[in-house]
Design a protein around this nucleic acid. Structure first.
Lengths: 342, 342
DNA sequence: TTGAAAGCGCTAACAC
DNA sequence: GTGTTAGCGCTTTCAA
């Protein structure tokens, strides 16, 4: 009754007067294949059900060299963007019989590398990684070794690894065009962390939209160094000093938008009457801000699900699975933070 | 160069001309204990470092009956409250050498039970569980079996299991008193999911505060059936119909508060001019709402950390570890959603 | 100071 | 139809 002592194939086979092999065969659904007699099969299945027995997955893992486990490395699980991805990864993986081992790299490249190593050392069958986004050296090796691995969000497209990300370029381009359509010409851009694929793609989308409409690109209007609230606040403050004539801010994350809102409030600029704002990545609370924020929505759930599916493909056939970039579409969610001017 | 073939103690021992035993001893830090010669020790350590070798944890797990793994079951990892707890659990666990296997019960008791069973079947050394909160039958058994298990948030105090939760009673009492201090008498209460420990404790705190100030308790002012935004919206609508004279709403979660804000907006009641609002559980975005919301903050990070620590205690000595409830203090974060009246 | 051997619980090859 | 045996990679007696 105390401290759970586990059952085993051997114990069961003894109680039932058959061999461990037979029990193993029945319990792994191979009864048919080995033409085990229906009575034996039933006896074993009933007994296992009654005793609530499942073959020890550790022993199975050792023997089969498979753990039915997927590693998930995320820069910050408390960030709703990543939490959304994680939730989908967990659920889809479970549906396929895989468990998720979760690591948090705390936006720290060293911790990321350590987490990745740790997970391989623990013999996960595959891994989903949202890189912190600055370095990819430690990943090149895994690409060569053809380990089942898919990158999400801050991807490195040139590594020959499977990647899932959103169409950041077009998302940003569309948002910028929307601002232009509303008469804005002096549009600031809070760029987030430079050197990350999503950051770069978004800024490219922004400049592409300007160029297409012959609006001069002013490099002083592009600012910022991270995706956090602090950067949004500080850089908006600086921006207002340096370019008081801006009429719109395009923030490359919703945290940046939050920070911008705070700075704008302090500077007594009303949104959207004085300055229009567009954010990136939709979150439930954006609809409840004052004003409700217009934003570029990313398909979180699809991202997580797609990552798992790509990974399962690779695990099935490591050699010839598709190893390219998947680009999911964004959508512009129009709320009330952009005002028409002129 | 292709497909990673793992090293092993045996392989290494062969290359070094010693026995697997010796390699194992050195690599598990038992060199001293077995008085292995410094040269042998160094040779083995150097080689392991060069080859980047770590003993296979699966084999180790089989032999030692320990997996250095903790299971974490959460009702919804996309909910920032739980994501905050998870982030701390992951980090503290890692610091102690444990990996986290994450399950999402999707607020579904059946899935919760399945997840718990799955994790034990996978031989996790211990488990941290945020129950969905309605049933506890399947947990009673684990209490009897003295499995390492700690409950977080929606705890069941009478099960003889270790629990971590916040002092919901006093948190709610303090918030209600603050409303009373500001002259409010008709205070509605969006109660969240009935039958959950936190929900009940919060409502008790609310009524206790009323009683202490001789403000009559009106059961019609208590409404709601879940902690989600929908319920906040709908029940606020109904509340305004049923009791148009309310001057304040105490929402037992921040999602409920969001819903209330939306309903209030539609009904043209300004916050806080017409109706004051207090939320429960602080989240970064609350400071950016219009108006910034006053709320009862819970110590997320401490909750996660405390849970891991209690669990580690139990895993060290399953028989006589502390198995009681830990109550963490809340704090009232005063922002701008409460107005003094009369 | 080191090694040989057994066994953790499982599955797959090879009998019969 | 079923069983015997070996071995996955590790740790731990026991022996030397």
């Amino acid at each position: 009754m105390n401290s759970p002592s586990y059952n085993s194939l051997k114990l069961i086979s003894k109680k039932l007067g058959v061999s461990p092999t037979t029990v193993s065969r029945v319990l792994s659904g191979q009864a048919q294949k080995y033409r085990i007699s229906p009575e034996t099969e039933k006896a074993i299945k009933d007994f296992a059900a009654k005793e609530n027995f499942t073959p020890n997955p550790i022993a199975k893992g050792l023997r089969l060299k498979k753990t039915l486990t997927i590693g998930l490395v995320i820069p910050d699980i408390a960030n709703p963007f990543f939490a959304g991805i994680a939730s989908q990864v967990v659920n889809v993986a479970r549906a396929h019989g895989y468990a998720i081992v979760l690591c948090d790299s705390e936006e720290n490249p060293a911790l990321e590398k350590q987490s990745v190593d740790l997970l391989w050392a623990r013999r996960v069958d595959g891994m989903i990684l949202c890189p912190v986004g600055q370095t990819s050296d430690h990943l090149a090796r895994y690409a060569r070794e053809k380990r089942p691995l898919v990158l999400v969000d801050r991807v490195f497209p040139d590594l020959g690894l499977a990647c899932v990300s959103t169409d950041n370029f077009n998302g940003a381009k569309t948002a910028t065009e929307y601002l232009l359509d509303n008469g804005h010409r002096r549009i600031a851009c809070l760029q987030g962390m430079p050197g990350t694929a999503p950051g770069q793609a978004r800024v490219s989308g922004y400049t592409a939209a300007l160029r297409a409409r012959n609006v001069p690109f002013d490099p002083r209007l592009v600012a910022g160094d991270s995706f956090g609230e602090q950067s949004g606040y500080l850089d908006t403050k600086l921006l207002i000093q340096a370019a008081p004539d801006i009429t719109a801010i395009f923030a490359m994350s919703n945290l940046l938008a939050l920070g911008a809102l705070r700075a704008l409030g302090e500077e007594n600029r009303r949104v959207p009457a004085d300055v229009s704002v567009i954010a990136f990545d939709d979150q439930p609370y954006l609809a409840h801000l004052a004003p409700p924020l217009t934003t570029v929505a990313q398909p979180h759930l699809e991202m997580g699900a797609a990552a798992v599916k790509l990974l399962l493909d690779q695990m099935r056939s490591p050699a010839n699975a598709l190893r390219s970039g998947l680009l999911l579409p964004t959508s512009l969610i129009i709320r009330k933070s952009v005002q028409k001017i002129n």
